[in-house]
């Protein structure tokens, strides 16, 4: 099962719609990383609004993905955590998902853009002639 990774300029978007197997997770991560590298992505938004359960495995997948992306220089935002998913993670004693979280994609993009604007390596705003794949 492939997770699509559309691009919005130098920002990547991806949505995890359902539970991943070990293999799926690995595949997703390596796809994302090579895309980040290819495009020199500045930021990634991971949308988990479709997940009504996040267990420790999925939490690790999300966290690891965020760490990997950061190592390649991309800012990470996780958006769409459902309220009871957040509550269950906290009750389980799950470490906070390292990334910053926003309610939805729109806010995620805004936050990302604000953060990116503060970066030293940010040169131009104009990569808008690139479209969604």
């Amino acid at each position: 099962m492939r997770i699509a990774i559309p691009r919005l300029g130098r920002i990547l978007l991806c949505a995890i719609q359902q539970d991943l197997s070990d293999d799926d997770a690995l595949e997703f991560q390596s796809n994302l990383l090579s895309t980040i590298a290819d495009v020199e992505a500045l930021g990634v938004v991971i949308d988990i609004s479709a997940l009504d359960v996040v267990d420790s495995f999925m939490a690790r997948v999300i966290n690891d993905t965020a760490s990997m992306a950061r190592l390649l220089g991309a800012e990470i935002i996780v958006c769409g955590i459902q309220p009871f998913v957040a509550l269950t993670l906290v009750e389980m004693g799950q470490g906070l998902l390292g990334a910053n979280c926003t309610f939805n994609l729109e806010q995620g993009l805004k936050t990302l853009q604000a953060r990116i604007a503060l970066r030293g390596d940010f040169t131009a705003t104009k990569d808008d002639d690139e479209h969604f794949d």
Binding site: I81, P83, A86, L87, L89, V90, L96, L97, N100, C101
Partner: peptide, 8 residues
């Protein structure tokens, strides 16, 4: 507080 912050 933790859960609220997790939501953003």
């Amino acid at each position: 507080v933790d859960a609220a912050q997790l939501l953003g």
